[in-house]
Design a protein around this nucleic acid. Structure first.
Lengths: 221, 221
DNA sequence: AAGCGCTATATTGTCGACAATGATTTGGTT
DNA sequence: AACCAAATCATTGTCGACAATATAGCGCTT
């Protein structure tokens, strides 16, 4: 009776997650061809589970597949980044709106606490904030929307692509303090249950973030 | 050299499309269990391609799968409709914004022509408009966004679920003339390259549309 | 008779082999 | 030498069989 509600994990699930991580982290570089037989030996599973993993990655736009030809990791381009962030702006803006409507006071308080903690670490000069803290903030708001489909779309689909851009461009440095101020304003709007403002601020925040990445990408090509 | 750029279609593609249609049209009812062996005999293909089809349908939230248990067609609920339309509002609003920015004059003119043709048929009392014409209008705007990821997300993902709700609730009747006026205003905003207005109007339009369906769904349960 | 545990059964997950398709190389022709 | 065609090769798509898991049914115990 005390058995936790643990959902079984299949071999295909594990392989999917592992493969996705290897791509996002750049172990398998952007644009690389994904040979099914090669991967099946590498991950010690049959081609069937590799195919399932690749199919799932195709669904979230991390790899592209052509029938009878094969699958390749997507190429990172400025156009692709633009497209991705237009979608992210749209969906996360909506998430912020819904969060302002649906988050409980307890959840909002935890969000505010989080920001305070971040502020401390930022002042102490750790740029660790950007990677983990930024994600944490956005994640809580997404969950706060209470829209299960939206949550899946963002956390299972778009997020990993976003992360792929950030990781492979070596994003770590700047935009820490400004981002903090923006986060603070968004949280305040949610606290005030101001849906309209929460959405607007989130969209602007994401647009700024995109511009930072786009600049970096342009400077590297 | 004259060979058209025809992308090959695999058996899995066909089965996926067929299965999706059968579910959306209600041939396979909402909430039904999808037995792999049963479907493989029904569609005359191996279980492997059935599994691939089911996996793809899972990716676009038309079926839900639990490991080692099986897949079921999603249940149509008011909450699900609400969630779906929040996402649709967000994404198609963005599509309208981008369409106002990126559609060519030729495309905009075709859009306006389309509306005029619709107006004629509407006056003659054919409610045929709603199903095909409405879709045509939205489809052109989505394509007009020129955002390939957004296009895929909407046309391959969300649209089929939307259609599933509309078909299975027997949507055909009302909201023809009012929807026409709304369409006209959106097109006008796009013509004026007014991104902000195009997005706002599209979002309102979709919200109205949701309310109509929600009412119908409530009256049937 | 109700509840628990075990067995039996059906369904899903995984695998290796075969078929079909696309790419490459080789040989021939102009 | 350049180009085309046919055959070879490698890779993907599909299939049927086996293994693993969950459900259902049965018998046993209390």
């Amino acid at each position: 009776m005390a058995t936790a509600n643990v959902t079984p994990i299949t071999s295909a699930d594990r392989t999917f997650i592992q493969l996705r991580q290897d791509i996002v982290e750049g172990v398998i570089p952007a644009g690389a061809k994904l040979s099914e037989t090669e991967l099946s030996t590498k991950y010690q599973v049959s081609r069937a589970v590799i195919r399932e993993a690749i199919n799932r990655l195709t669904a979230c736009h991390i790899v592209e597949r052509r029938a009878n030809v094969g699958a390749r990791v997507v190429e990172l381009s400025e156009a692709g980044l633009q497209e991705l962030y237009e979608i992210r702006e749209s969906l996360e803006g909506m998430a912020a709106r819904l969060a302002a409507r649906n988050m409980t006071m307890a959840e909002i308080n935890k969000l505010l606490n989080l920001l305070d903690t971040h502020f401390e670490t930022v002042r102490e000069g750790e740029s660790y904030y950007q990677e983990a803290g930024d994600y944490d903030f956005h994640y809580r708001i997404i969950l706060g929307s209470k829209n299960q489909q939206l949550i899946t779309l963002l956390t299972e689909g778009i997020y990993h692509l976003v992360r792929m851009y950030r990781v492979q461009l070596g994003m770590a440095g700047p935009r820490v303090t400004t981002a903090y101020a923006e986060h603070k304003h968004i949280a305040q709007a949610i606290l005030n249950r101001d849906e309209e403002l929460a959405e607007i601020l989130m969209r602007r925040h994401i647009t700024y973030s995109k511009n930072t990445i786009a600049k970096k990408l342009a400077s590297q090509s």
